[in-house]
Design a protein around this nucleic acid. Structure first.
Length: 816
RNA sequence: GCCGCGGUGGCGGAAUUGGUAGACGCGCUGGACUCAAAAUCCAGUGGUAGCAAUAUCAUGAGAGUUCGAGUCUCUCCCGCGGCACCA
């Protein structure tokens, strides 16, 4: 028998499977249940890393198993090909982003093929191709026409290094998520999508999903729903009112001042009418310019300025209280104004102490002489509400002051326009002359046109709006998109009046592209629709979505929103796209650190595959730890050798295959293994599945010749993990069909149940003996056996048996 | 600060969900084969005591519930992740 040569075997079968189209999946199937397994599609960065293997080769085990169980499985792959990194790399190397991306896709495709995965390549989706982004544009326009997209001057996150706007989700503690530059604030006109309209449903619908709690919580935190109420404070002598948002209306009698955020619209109104206008103006000016990273920095002392000469009136007791502007109140949250209750809020307490403002306790239960008391209790100093609990008082005081119940969210609308070249052109045009008319008579226009006067969707027959080939695609500091430099691109015809219109020159955030790719996989070649409803109903919703935790509050949240919006438009038929979502763990370098070029601990999967083979690599990644937990697993160069050894032993075992009849213990272990491996794969615990296969091999090696039938069954169990070797050995046994189209073996339950069981005998909770008895032995049978044991008698002696606990088929505990 | 997840040998990790703690793999120790090495095979491998059978301690710390706790409850410590001047 030849030595195990992974190179020839792996190459050979990859070609055969591909030539035979073994893994191409039709939308229709007869008598099989459909199953859609999705793994986040890769970004064509240029090179595959071990993380890609972990993302695709390990789920392939699950997918192959599902197929053997008789499911019709969709396991697609594609590339998330638009976006900043490709463009930055292209700029750096002086090449065109398209060429750069295409080259990377071609190279990485070959690398992915070396995994021996059972992807349906015929469904490949590449987001930067017009056949795909035509539908990204079309879907975006559906949202536009539904009034979910608006253009508005807003304060945006500007990355000075990437030279583009970032969504809130792309800013991590004041820095650009991608390049770590400090993000600046700029006021710019941007296209945003109303994800906040869906905030409640995005939270509430989490209930129905089979997702790990940590993902649900992270999304809830991100959306940050807070239930409270709005209360109006009249400004003495002014017509304007200050509306505050509070979750503690029960403390209204403890208000000793009111604060406006520097961005609050009333600030400028008041500034002009107070004695210290200059001081206020200076304060506001410096506060607004500050970067978030400074403004939010830890332990920062609170600052603010009093509006001299104006007062607000507390609606609860008619008391006049001073008004401040202070940057500890955020313009972007709530109403941008708060009522300050120093006695019962830590921030207000700190501010009050600094500016020597009164602290008035209105809830009994804590000492407010040193710090704020934020707990609940009984009201004091609150007029007729004294003696009520904080809970009761909330509603009553809201009624008393005419407040409104109100919910606020941390979530901001999703800014989707980017001032960069390598993205989907936003398919909208602007017509100045129509802008005025649309505002006058808004009938006959869709919601998008009504809320964005002068802006029109490019008509269906004009899609896609192609991304033009231009020479200078570099971004600029002034916030103008590179596309605006192409005069040819900018010129368009107004779909309403037929006159001259201008194209939008910003491109879409790549997260828009990836918000619906799983729908396209269902029907990737459809030229008339983004996907047919038949194709969608075959596969959607996604049964299992595997990805990385970094996308919890970005891609996963965006795509849930996008899907819900499409659901409301009747374009898809379920409101949630993913039944199960899982965050996989991370493979660390051999030093236990996250792999990075700067640390020099990056592993090259190509080298490992060349040296040890794809099957070894797959097995090791399966074995390294439980797949369904967000653990981080350090790579071990010695550990993977163990997997290679195991495969070589499987290979050598072939020589012991003969026509012997397997003994009982072998048959029992075979069936136990069939059962356990199936259970473990189902639960994504590939590590223990591999372990069971190893236990089985250890047994077979020790027990003389191996029956051909048993060896075949062994190979079936191994085939999802090591598809190439098991296919080769399968054929060496004389089979001429593929191992990967075989059915998963069925374990013989009655065989397993008929076996004798070992029962642990404890005395006072300590293991003292073990006895063997038939699995259907009665408690009385067991009792007789136990008390026949000399060891038991030795321990029990002449003491009274106070308790005899019997756990069937498991253990006995005798309490003396 | 709030929320979520976790803490088990030298290492990655098992543990039938309240029932033999440490499966499986790595590493390590000893042996076989070899002139030798590698590879392979065999045996051992949580601590302590013992030649051994065995006893005893042990799942971050401490308490509790239970015949029985890695698993449940409470208090605390540590690590990872999310949110954070969010009113």
């Amino acid at each position: 028998m030849q030595k195990y040569n992974h190179k020839t075997i792996e190459k050979k079968w990859q070609k055969v499977w591909s030539d035979e189209c073994l893994y191409e999946t039709s939308n229709e199937s007869s008598g099989k249940e459909n199953f859609y397994f999705l793994s986040e599609f890769p970004y064509p960065s240029g090179n595959l890393h071990v993380g890609h293997w972990y993302a695709f080769a390990v789920p392939d085990i699950f997918v192959r198993f599902k197929r053997m169980q008789g499911f019709h499985v969709l396991f697609p792959i594609g590339f998330d090909a638009f976006g900043l990194p490709a463009e930055n790399a292209a700029i750096k190397h002086g090449v065109n982003p398209r060429e750069w991306t295409e080259k990377n896709i071609a190279y990485m495709t070959g690398q992915i093929e070396s995994m021996g995965g059972s992807f349906d390549w015929s469904r490949k989706v590449i987001t930067c191709q017009p056949e795909y982004y035509r539908w990204t544009q079309w879907l975006f326009l559906q949202l536009f026409q539904a009034g979910l997209v608006y253009r508005k001057e807003i304060s945006v996150n500007w990355c000075p290094s990437c030279k583009t706007v970032l969504a809130n989700e792309q800013v991590v503690s004041g820095e650009c998520e991608r390049c770590n530059s400090v993000v600046e604030k700029r006021n710019m006109k941007q296209w945003s999508v109303k994800i906040t309209d869906y905030a409640d449903r995005l939270i509430d619908d989490l209930e129905s999903l089979e997702w790990p709690e940590e993902i649900k919580t992270a999304q809830r935190n991100w959306i940050g729903r807070s239930e409270g109420s709005e209360v109006d404070f009249v400004i003495f002598g002014f017509s304007e009112k200050i509306t505050v948002f509070t979750t503690r209306p029960d403390t209204l009698f403890g208000v000793t001042y009111v604060v406006l955020a520097p961005e609050h619209p009333l600030v400028s109104v008041l500034t002009n009418r107070v004695k210290n206008s200059d001081v206020v103006r200076n304060y506001v000016a410096q506060a607004i310019v500050q970067k978030d990273i400074d403004r939010l920095s830890d332990g920062r002392e609170k600052t603010g300025v009093l509006f001299e000469g104006v007062v607000a009136v507390n609606p609860a007791n008619g008391e006049e209280v001073p008004i401040f502007v202070a940057d500890y109140v955020l313009g972007s949250y709530g109403t941008g104004a708060v009522m300050a209750v120093p006695a019962h809020d830590e921030r207000d307490y700190a501010f009050a102490k600094k500016y020597d403002l009164p602290v008035r306790q209105v809830v009994d239960g804590g000492d407010v002489s040193q710090s704020a008391w934020t707990g609940s209790g009984v009201l004091v100093n609150s007029g007729s509400f004294d003696g009520m609990t904080t809970d009761d008082a909330k509603k009553k005081i809201i009624d008393h002051v005419g407040g409104r119940i109100s919910k606020k969210y941390r979530l901001r609308d999703w800014t989707v326009s980017r001032q960069r070249y390598w993205g989907v052109p936003i398919p909208l045009v602007y017509c100045e002359s129509c802008a005025i008319q649309v505002q006058d008579e808004s009938t006959g226009v869709n919601n998008g046109e009504a809320i964005n006067p002068g802006w029109f969707a490019v008509s269906d027959d004009q899609l896609p709006v192609l991304l033009p080939e231009i020479d200078d695609f570099r971004p600029s500091d002034d916030g103008k998109s590179p596309l605006s430099k192409s005069a040819e691109f900018v010129e368009a015809m107004c779909p309403r009046c037929g006159g001259r219109a201008l194209r939008e020159t910003d491109t879409l955030d790549t997260f828009v592209c990836s918000s619906w790719y799983f729908l396209r996989y269902c029907d990737p070649k459809n030229a008339r629709q983004f996907a047919s409803s038949e194709a969608l109903s075959s596969w959607m919703p996604v049964d299992f979505y595997s990805g990385g935790s970094e996308h919890t509050t970005m891609h996963v949240l965006y795509s849930r929103f996008f899907h819900k919006a499409l659901f409301d438009l009747g374009l898809v038929s379920e409101s949630e796209p993913y039944v199960r979502r899982m965050n996989r763990g991370m493979i660390l370098g051999t030093d236990g650190q996250k792999m990075s070029k700067s640390k020099g601990n990056v592993l090259d999967p190509d080298k490992i595959v060349a040296e040890l083979g794809a099957d070894t690599m797959r097995l090791y990644l399966a074995f390294i730890g439980p797949y369904n937990e967000v653990g981080s697993y350090p790579w071990s160069t010695e550990g993977i050798i163990g997997m290679r050894r195991f495969l070589e032993r499987v290979w050598r075992l072939f020589e012991k295959v003969s026509n012997v009849t397997p003994d009982d213990s072998t048959m029992v272990l075979l069936h136990r293994s069939i059962e356990k491996v199936a259970q473990d794969i189902t639960a994504l615990k590939f590590n223990t599945a591999v372990s069971q296969i190893m236990v089985f091999l250890n047994h077979l090696e020790k027990s003389g010749d191996v029956s051909r039938g048993v060896y075949e069954q062994f190979l079936l169990l191994l085939s999802p993990f090591a598809p190439h070797m098991s296919e080769e050995l399968w054929h060496m046994l004389g089979n001429d069909d593929f191992i990967h189209v075989q059915l998963w073996p069925v374990h013989d339950e009655s065989l397993l149940r008929s076996q004798n069981v070992e029962i642990v005998v404890q005395i006072n909770g300590r293991v003292r003996d073990k006895i063997l008895c038939s699995s259907d032995a009665s408690e009385e049978d067991v009792r007789l056996l136990v008390f026949a044991s000399s060891r038991v008698l030795q321990y029990v002696g002449d003491k009274d048996v106070r308790k005899f606990i019997y756990v069937p088929r498991r253990l006995v505990n005798i309490v003396v």
